[in-house]
Amino acid sequence: MNISNLLLKNLRYKHIYAFVAASFVLLLSACLKDDNADNGSIPATLVSIVHASPDAGDLIVGIDGSRANNQSFNLGNRIVYLPFFPGGHQFQVNRASDNKMLDIKNWNLEGSVYYTIFAVDRLDSLELLGVRDFYAGDEFKENHAKVRFINLCPDSVSFDLKVNTIDTLLASNKKFKQNSQFGDIIADDKTSYNVQILDHATNRQLAVEEFKPVAGRYYTIMAGGLMDPKTEAQKLRVFVLKHD
């Protein structure tokens, strides 16, 4: 499916679509805020998309045949949560330079659940990886945030995730495309962390990034890039993704 051509064909209807899309978002957002089976509302499902391919360059993302990103979409970029009715949805990713389709997946999504879909691996084997995030209405400890780790470095060894002020690892022995569950971490005005990606076998530090969480927020710490990069832009580094 040529997503770009589909959008160009329908460009003359952009004002109508914008109004319909805005109404759709408001309707689904209202469903999430008032998720009560007795009043007949349908709880929405929300999906974000993250570019995690170190060498794919600019990508086009399509959802159910419509383009999801209007701006450039490169390594580390994220499309914030988009609301949909629960059920089956089709996700597609194309290379922006020539609109070549790289992967297409169909997923059945639950209501009141947040998901992130990652475009992962190198260009010649790029795929979409769907990960369940959390449920709407999950509770937080006071002055805490929730953090998880995902290893999306294609040529990686197993990684650990450590922060400088906590003795225990936040995640251990995560191979490519593996993630940990969300865990609690202190988040107040006085607390910041150095987040370190370690080689699980040798305990050698491979990448580090400063991280200051905000209480009541979810974060994914992503290992992205390559251990053996061809360019500086492809170098392994820590990405802190805030779920908003």
Rank of each mutant, 00 (worst) to 15 (best):
G130F: 06
L126I: 12
A136P: 00
E127K: 15
K141S: 09
A119E: 09
N151G: 02
R122P: 00
F140P: 03
D133L: 03
D124A: 14
F140Q: 10
L126D: 11
F134A: 12
K146D: 04
A136F: 10
E127P: 01
Y135E: 12
E142T: 11
D133I: 01
R122A: 11
H144G: 03
D124M: 08
N143K: 11
V131A: 10
E127T: 11
A119F: 04
L126R: 14
A145N: 04
L126N: 13
G130H: 09
K141A: 12
L126S: 14
Y135F: 08
L123P: 00
I117N: 10
I150T: 05
F134Y: 14
E139H: 00
L128R: 10
V147M: 09
V147D: 03
S125I: 01
F149W: 04
A145F: 01
D138G: 00
H144I: 05
I150A: 12
G137V: 06
L128S: 09
S125G: 10
L129K: 13
H144A: 14
I150P: 00
F149K: 03
R122S: 09
L126P: 04
L126A: 15
L123H: 10
S125M: 05
F149Y: 02
V120C: 12
D138F: 01
L129R: 08
D121E: 15
N151V: 05
R132V: 15
L123S: 15
A136H: 06
A145Q: 05
E127M: 15
A136L: 07
D133C: 05
S125P: 00
R122L: 15
I150Q: 06
V131F: 04
L123A: 15
F118K: 02
E142Y: 02
D138Q: 06
N151H: 06
R132S: 14
I117G: 08
E139W: 01
L129Q: 08
L129E: 06
E127G: 13
G137C: 06
R148L: 01
R148H: 01
N143S: 12
L129P: 04
L128H: 08
L129M: 14
D138N: 05
F118N: 01
G137H: 02
H144W: 01
K141I: 05
F149S: 02
N151Q: 05
D138L: 03
A136Y: 05
L126G: 11
A119M: 13
N151P: 01
V131E: 12
K146A: 09
E139T: 10
